[in-house]
Design a protein around this nucleic acid. Sequence first.
DNA 1: GAGTTTGAAACT
DNA 2: CAGTTTCAAACTC
Length: 797
Amino acid sequence: MDVVPPELNSLLPDEIMDTEAIVTDDDLPAVCPAPPNALERQDTPVPMETEVPEIVTLCTAAPSIPVQRTQAMTTLTSTDSTPSSGSMGTQLLLTPSSSAMTLQPSSPQVTGSLQRLSTSLALPANHQLILNKVAASPGSELKPQLLKQDGQKLVVTTLGKGGQPIVLAMPHSAAKAGTLLSAGDGKGQPQQFKVVTIGGRTDLKPMVGVQALSTASQLMGTSQTVQQGQHPKTLQITKKVPVSTAAPMITKFIITKALNSKGLNSQTSLSPVMTGRVLTQSTPLTPPRTISVMDALSSTQSGSSKMAISPLKSPSKLTVVSVASPSPASPQKSVAVPLSMALGQQILHMQQQSTPASPAKAGLSHSTTQTVKPVQTVTVGGVGGPQFKTIVPLATSPNVQHIQVPGSRFHYVRLVTASSGSPPAPTGSSPSVAASLQPAKPMVVNSATVRMSVPIVSAQTMKQVVPKPLTSAAPQVVTSQQQRLIMPATPLPQLQPLPPGTLLAPAPGSGNMGYAVLSAPYVTQLQQSTIVTLASSSGFSSPTCVQTQARLPLNGLSDFPSSLSASESTSRQRKPCNCTKSQCLKLYCDCFANGEFCSNCNCTNCFNNLEHESERLKAIKACLDRNPEAFKPKIGKGKEGESDRRHSKGCNCKRSGCLKNYCECYEAKIMCSSICKCVGCKNFEESPERKTLMHLADAAEVRVQQQTAAKTKLSSQISDLLTRTTPAISSGGGKQPYTFVTKEVAEATVECLMEQAEQAELSNQSQAMAERVILEEFGRCLKRIINYAGKAKTDCC
DNA sequence: GAGTTTGAAACT
DNA sequence: CAGTTTCAAACTC
């Protein structure tokens, strides 16, 4: 089983996502029929500040393929304006890799180290991509491998410190995507690679999809970034997954994110486009596995299943983990994809690769002519169906719109996908993206618009987002022992709400494949033990990293902890619990109640962690048995005519007057409603007590802000004063306002001190006494200085 | 920081 | 479903 660590998600280009345009009701359901209850949560407010839609794709290959191949995918976008359709001679130059690669057309995919290419990419008119050459790793015996097929030239090279070879395929046409390349292994051991072309190229704004292939490097987790110009195009992280020889299983993880597809694909402009990220794991001594990004269409055709995950509360992140080895030929199932829940959704894309690198598969990345601006998006998808796209954060992309949300601590960035050739036609499903051609500029949007965007910076999540340095040379190995499932890979139909850590029922026909839903803390914990090296580059500086957090309704398990209101989510950003007796396995524990693992809590005897998966699952089940809606958000949408937000059950306060945080309504900053059973409630609109409290609260807040500002100002003034007085003393030069320790004063002071010293010496006083006298004299001098200073200041004023 | 209050959750 | 107990957060001192 592979686990996608949260850092990977954080590195996803989610900061530029506009999720609304991505998923529409017309798409995913068609692929994966959603259970009836999968859409129940539509009325649930989506915490716009914390929901980061993600698409996780899990791919499993035929277990019977004991191959040792590593494939890392990297997508590139090209701004080359030269019409390149069908042109020959597209060439991509990369630096030599440490190990040779052999690409075999029919080779199945295996997971591999992710390559992050930190190079500048030039794409001249002759379609020759040249990545900055990086010194080959020691022992590198290879030269750049030029690969040709159908007019393509590919160069196998090594980029970055990982020294892992990368093959980039540049399709000059969609039909030729998926070129297979071959290279010689430095050790004489052929390795199979499959090149999948991601994205296509348009006439005016060609977008070149490049897939980097890497050999089975002993070092895992090394990632590199492919950049075009100064814009990082993709960020992918791979981990080598231990592959059992007895049961070779290829597991692929692709994290994709929804992206506005407008303007990206002329033929599928209305299709949702998703960004993808490939995650793989591998161990040094085991064959690398293949990672691939596949478009939804191809996936569907090849028997893939999709799973829509509804947005969840901020602190949690869900990850789908492949639990069991799939049967290669087993048909895949759709798990449930309510596309109407596109916002903040996570989509789990489970794919079986029963067929090795067949042309059809290689073509999965085919995309029709696409028009892409220097945006960070790369279309990976195919024609006529949902697509996966890789969104590459561009720090200074002109197509990124900074969105400022009043009252939000998050910084939103709207990714604007503009096509030069054909303006994106606004679609009904994603009208907000229609204006994507606008130059990047700060803008203020209302919450309705904001919720379609993705926060790119969360102060409290940033620390979790910081990617591991690329230079990490230590092998990052994730062993199967380190990976845990909260529940066995068996269906759990009885669980309607699916908290993180719950196993997803295998899709019908998917064989014995199961999926586990992991919450962010879970992944975090896994990550702590199973380190995955993430590439870090300037292009992915912390501000662009996003801690994606979402929760999901899976298999119709839409009731699982989910959305809090924006204020709620921001107010309780990962508040540590202090449970002592509940073992954090009851709803008393906020962490547990929110479907989160305890992390950095003060709890004792905590079972809400990886080490107690079974207990936790039992507790979850028990809670659900007691109350199937136990993990539903308490604050939901009220009835018509009522407030937009109200407590789902209402409070039962008796003594607090519902004006203290004991009251859940008041805590959520909402009024008590008709369903509340509170006594002596003062938490209603016209309540004078409530108004008073509100005013006091506002005043207190203002006061705090003022105090903070005053402190800041004082510190600044002190600092400034010090900087101004220092030169006056040291240089003895010009006098400055309120600077009285001038050269003359200092000299006079020194003379006084010397005089005292001489007197002490003449009087044969002891050294201690002499020091005391001198200090006393110094004190007097200071006193005089202060007095003169005060007097001078008074006179000045 | 310790103790108290409070109300939701859990239990009977 | 109601009453009681348990629990952890909120609150007070």
